[in-house]
Design a binder for these strands. Structure first.
Lengths: 190, 190
DNA sequence: AGGGTGGGAGAACGTGCGTTCTCAGTTCTT
DNA sequence: AAGAACTGAGAACGCACGTTCTCCCACCCT
């Protein structure tokens, strides 16, 4: 098995186990067992657990934002449609059987105060999501794209948290309605 | 030292340390050292760490909701004022130097998948906050108090998460504006 | 072909932590 | 006043986990 293939299998295993169970509930032995990569190779690819966690978060960030952007691009016919489409995608995400909330919020709560690299990865992810939302709000003629993007980010994170805790994917719906209301309010001020 | 005094000191110490550092970063020895309560008595009061964590969460829930409700009652002159007051209180909370996000969201990310009692305490807290917000939205003549309460809950949790991750208390402001906009929209539909 | 290099499996090590035990000292009871 | 029960301080135990080491096997180069 090559170094690169081992790295990929480790990252896939890490994402599955860390996301499903939390970081500190998953030992390096579990990563080894589920990935089929030996411990020696594991530590060649990632010199510590923390570095594996950081790599897992960076990879998940790319994939998560990619899935969101792809869905929105495929389902939104106009810039105005893009914003509700974000929350439609949230809803489909919440409905996935292994949904367990936002990996970044969970990791931040678990490790944010002890692992600076993890905290930085979480901040980076939220900044990139914010930048994406700002793209969407800038594409429509609203008065204050920055404020609307901030509001959408809060709605997005809030819906994710509520859905994770209650276990109810319908938590996306009120946030979607709120997003649409805030958007139309900025488009056609009362 | 009496049993009750020990319990109180343990809970105060647990709240301070668990909230600041996360649960699994704080050992029972740290609780003992900072509280001045012996390990023997500690285990008389709380038979396990998990029970201490649950008691900490239940106590924090009562205090947190109490502080919120007191602030709102003191600062809102009309039912319409209550909803923005919720977010004003959020802002003052975010500005506290030891603010580190929502204890319940953090604990859920850390322990939700392994400690059912913790997950239940978190769910209970969110239900009670939701019930409080529903009280507020029912007190004003809106079309759909339930949906507005759900939206406020998402905005509240979202703002808390964003403030914790970015470290910027100003995350409360866009959510406050969004809450006001959604409220007025339901009061005077366009 | 054969010695050396690298890899896999898993044992071993050190540490940290939850929990319990030991052992004096102290207080309460009669 | 004397014995019993309780208490605090901290050692001890068991376990889990991150990390490293050992051993043996397979492959590679000349």
């Amino acid at each position: 098995m090559h170094h690169e293939e081992a790295t990929i299998r480790l990252l896939e295993t890490a994402e599955k186990l860390f996301y499903a169970n939390g970081v500190h509930a998953v030992g390096m032995d579990a990563i080894r067992t589920h990935s089929g990569v030996s411990l020696k190779r594991l530590y060649q690819c990632f010199p510590s657990k923390e570095s594996l966690v950081e790599a897992y978060l960076l990879r998940r960030d790319k994939r998560w934002r990619g899935r969101l952007a792809d869905f929105v691009a495929a389902h939104a016919e106009s810039p105005e449609d893009a914003i509700p489409a974000v929350f439609d995608w949230l809803h489909t995400w919440f409905c996935e059987p292994d949904f367990r909330g936002c990996a970044f919020i969970n990791s931040f709560g678990e490790l944010g105060s002890t692992a600076p690299g993890v905290a930085a990865a979480v901040r980076l992810h939220k900044e990139l999501v914010h930048a994406y939302l700002l793209e969407l709000t800038t594409a429509v003629a609203v008065k204050d794209p920055e404020e609307l993007a901030n509001q959408l980010l809060s709605l997005l994170d809030g819906a994710t948290v509520v859905a994770a805790i209650t276990g109810d994917p319908a938590a996306a719906l009120p946030s979607r309605a709120a997003a649409v209301a805030l958007l139309t309010l900025q488009l056609r001020p009362a």
